[in-house]
Design a protein around this nucleic acid. Structure first.
Lengths: 280, 280
DNA sequence: CTTGTATTTTTCATATTGTGAAAGTGAGTT
DNA sequence: AACTCACTTTCACAATATGAAAAATACAAG
């Protein structure tokens, strides 16, 4: 059962020096650029701030910071609000970032399926991938109901307290799973959150067996979420798909029924991107 | 009726040297950073490319480009695909960019209204703003119909061939309008596209008078679009909202009826962001 | 298996250019 | 009207970004 790698074809490998370092010391980077990107990142995280405050938060000289900001402003990556003297993330950052979605056709192909899933279940449908040990929400089709779950695309969320996250963890190879667990402590969000690693591992086995994950008020009280993994051509779980809604509508009686629909939809997306689910 | 400003509190105005230059020569920027951002922008526009190709396209030395890319990679802004040796825009760019939407509450507040608009008209509803003489689409609620218009959020589009674009142009102050017209030639997309400035100006007057704009197959044949402007507290048109769909469903008979609904929805968004429409 | 070629990655010497301190500027405040 | 504060620009200096060239590597051909 250890035949993970596919020796059937020679997949045009890299020339040049191999990037085996990966863990890297990454000495070969540009300092000033890296610092500037730190500014951009920081700016995107909080509210807009005036120069002086940024300089303090980032421990940089106002003069340098000012030049970084005006340079980024020149390309529209940040914006300056004259009224309040505050620097904000700019529209161009959104334009550039949004193009990430177009790269992988995952989002496009999943979208019609997400929509149908929403109509079938009546609940908001979400698509997410794993990124740096977190779940990154890529796309969403919202329910018509007025009480609805809401994960804006671009949101990052803890894996262990998310349906999609657990679905992905359950399919992860052991070593990678361990690394994720090591790097991300099991923070508690509600009384239902799984904070014990053993307990989580048990749940993951159940998920793998059942085919779908349940986030049972583990992130937000009153909200349930049913998720299933999406597989690529190498039978690796590259994304997850979920429906989420209030416990009142996603009642315990409905879970297995919804679970089947979610698995079905995830399998459809898998084949839409040329993938195929694990044979069990 | 000129009491715009709220005298109840001191609205913390700018100190320091005023940014009156605006047009600026912007000598005060960091060259290397600017070049790096150009790389990021370029990367987001096309498909993923290998280093050598990028170096040629951007006229930069491979060595420098390589360091820029690895630096950006370190922050997840670009990604390197080992299989094909291609550099792509990264997930972190999406994460950062997506936060732009959270800044202005416009999107959040408009979303429920967009949704209702979609349900009322049965057609895809869109929200967009003007950015650098173009229309930037921010958000969208798609119709249930299988034939539907599609502007992915983050898309930029020419103003003169877009419903939202024309609605915004119609409310623009003359000097700014002229500048936009000067900087953006009236490209022809279909036989219906307005390519004559005089003709466009005439249409804008009509739009201002009527309160909504019609894109009558001016960008894509077979597609109509009805749009209206959204106003902020200063009675400036800061965004626009539209429904778009095939000519078969948005027939000439329905236009005025849909127009009224769109105007109504736009007015609602206006008040949701604390704005108010022009009194006519 | 050996050699050749294309591409990426690193090294290295150089001067470009990013940097912080401090001076300058204007708006708000007393 | 003088003062204060925060942003913006100037300036001199050396840190560091840069490109040429060399090294490293994978793939292709003989």
């Amino acid at each position: 059962m250890e035949s993970q790698d596919n020796p059937s074809k020679s997949p045009r490998r890299a020339r040049g020096r191999p990037r085996d370092w990966e863990d890297k010391t990454a000495q070969n980077t540009i300092k000033s650029l890296d610092r500037a990107m730190m500014v951009l990142e920081f700016l995107s995280e909080g509210q807009g701030k005036p120069l002086s405050e940024l300089a303090q938060d980032l421990q940089q000289s106002p003069a340098t910071l000012y030049r970084v900001l005006t340079t980024l402003e020149g390309r529209g990556l940040v914006e300056f609000e004259t009224e309040t003297q505050a620097w904000h993330i700019g529209a161009q950052a959104f334009v550039i970032g949004a193009r990430f979605l177009r790269r992988t056709s995952l989002v496009e192909r999943a979208r019609p399926i997400l929509r149908r899933l929403m109509e079938q279940t009546g609940e908001t449908a979400n698509l997410g991938v794993e990124k740096g040990g977190m779940v990154l929400f890529l796309s969403q089709v919202e329910t018509h109901e007025s009480i609805r779950a809401f994960f804006p695309p671009g949101t990052l969320s803890q894996m262990h307290a998310s349906g999609i996250g657990k679905a992905l963890l359950a399919e992860m190879e052991p070593s990678r799973l361990e690394r994720v667990l090591k790097e991300h402590p099991l923070a508690e969000f509600t009384t239902q959150t799984i904070t014990d690693a053993g307990h989580l591992r048990q749940d993951l086995l159940l998920i793998q067996d059942r085919g779908y994950a349940i986030d049972d008020e583990e992130k937000n009280l009153g909200m349930r979420c049913i998720a299933a993994p999406i597989f690529d051509m190498h039978q690796e779980a590259v994304a997850g798909l979920s429906v989420s809604g209030p416990t009142s509508r996603i009642s315990r009686d409905h879970i297995s029924e919804i679970g089947a629909v979610v698995i079905e939809a995830a399998a459809e997306v898998s084949s839409a991107i040329g993938g195929q689910a694990l044979r069990r």
